[in-house]
Design a protein around this nucleic acid. Structure first.
Lengths: 246, 246
DNA sequence: AGATGTGGTTGACGTGGATCAACGGCGCCC
DNA sequence: GGGCGCCGTTGATCCACGTCAACCACATCT
């Protein structure tokens, strides 16, 4: 439990070289030597309470953010009120890359739980990555990874059926929890059925039914947001088959 | 009409500063001074015939490409044979950004017509963008724009109905043709109904029916791949309404 | 403990788009 | 110039998912 602290930039000097998330975050793969130079990179930290936004669509773009603790969703809105969750982000992942192109953000980033981010002023990032080759390279990789990830989601939305989508989603979560040292099989969903549905292009009832189906089939146990995967291989098998390979 | 030339890197010295696509391509927004430095950037040109690939998923990543003439599609494949078109690219647009993250390409880039690209060796791009601030900034914007574009497609795939998807697609094409000095209303589709369907997460029959519907409703005239938009405002109106705002 | 609200589950029913099938237009190539 | 193959159109039918509605589980507040 953390003490209650107002949601502001705080003066605490953040240091990438000291951070235990270095293996997951922007500096991944950088040399010790280059890493030392990053101490000037992080402008500060910022806490964001559950349901509050780190930035909103239209905000001018000044910084990107590395998640230090907690998790977020990003979503985009259409004029007519429809919205779509474009991603869920966890510790070590980078938020805000969408803002570079238009110098203003194009989506909302909202905390799914009380969270904390490192603020990386973009001007400083560009400046430093002109000097530190490793940083430049890693930053490009992070952006490219985001593009590849989005292609995966497009694949999912464009050509998978409901249960396949949910299976792919859960396996992806599981793998990301594993990378963070948590159990691959048992975890707590931070988002609602509605948010999962929005991300997967499904209605919340369909998501709920797919969960029930997986449970009936012995693939997993589901109690509200608490998930335990019992048969990961079975879930993977769901993805290998054509939708209607009659 | 160009003379037939074998599909190889040719020795022709490409020059961004002389290129009439500069307003659309990577150097967009760069100063005259910075632009001069780009002459070392482009490694050469490469012609790609219709249906041939510029690169394939799994190829090691060495360069990104700027389309000088023609157009491409990119697609990703699932193990089970399903595939999904992730984008259509036209002159001035950049291909290959997906390759940076894993140092190998994650999708196929296939020419929709006989095309030509500028080859931009990635190592050289990183090197030069450490020296030329304008280039660094523009490159980041191009990557970010790709991310924003992908979010738009996710929105489309996740929350629009068939006719809305096609309308959005056509309006997007129209706008990109306009930016290239072509007619906003009348153009030639370079891709098949099947490819459009794959991109939009629909079957080719559904795409065909939506075209027929638009024609019946007087929104456009369609003759095979030749499209004329008669009522752009009507198409836009299709996008403003909820799917089932009963 | 009871009231209230948010999120999740489940059932009954409707529908948009997939599937299956037949056919038409057009270019290409022997 | 006739046959072949690809692409596109259209109709009939089916089904996965959406919609609508009722109900339940929990958390929070008083």
């Amino acid at each position: 439990m953390k003490a209650a602290v107002p949601i502001t930039v705080n003066g605490l000097k953040a240091s990438c070289s000291q951070c235990n998330l270095v293996e997951l975050c922007l500096p991944f793969g950088m040399s010790e030597h280059d890493l030392d130079r990053l101490d000037e990179l992080v402008g500060g930290r910022r806490k964001v309470k559950r349901q509050q936004s780190l930035y909103r669509a239209g905000d001018i773009f000044e910084a990107i953010y590395a998640i230090r603790a907690g998790s977020f969703k990003t979503d985009v809105l259409l004029e007519d009120g429809r919205d779509q969750v474009t991603g869920f982000q966890m510790t070590g992942e980078i938020l805000g890359l969408d803002g570079i192109s238009a110098e203003s953000h194009s989506c909302n980033a909202i905390a799914l739980e009380d969270s904390e981010v490192c603020v990386i002023p973009y001007a400083k990032l560009e400046e430093l990555s002109r000097e530190v080759e490793g940083l430049q390279h890693q930053f490009h990789k992070v952006m490219s990874r985001e593009i590849v990830r989005d292609h995966g989601v497009m694949m999912l939305l464009g050509s998978m059926r409901a249960e396949e989508r949910l299976a792919a989603f859960l396996l992806n979560l599981s793998q990301r929890f594993t990378a963070r040292g948590f159990s691959a099989a048992e975890f707590h969903l931070r988002m609602t059925r509605d948010e999962i549905g929005s991300y997967l292009g499904l209605k919340l009832e369909t998501v709920s039914r797919a969960f029930s189906r997986f449970q009936e089939d012995g693939l997993m146990s589901v109690q509200q947001k608490h998930i335990r995967i019992l048969d990961a291989a079975g879930l993977k098998r769901l993805l290998q088959h054509h939708p209607s390979s009659r």
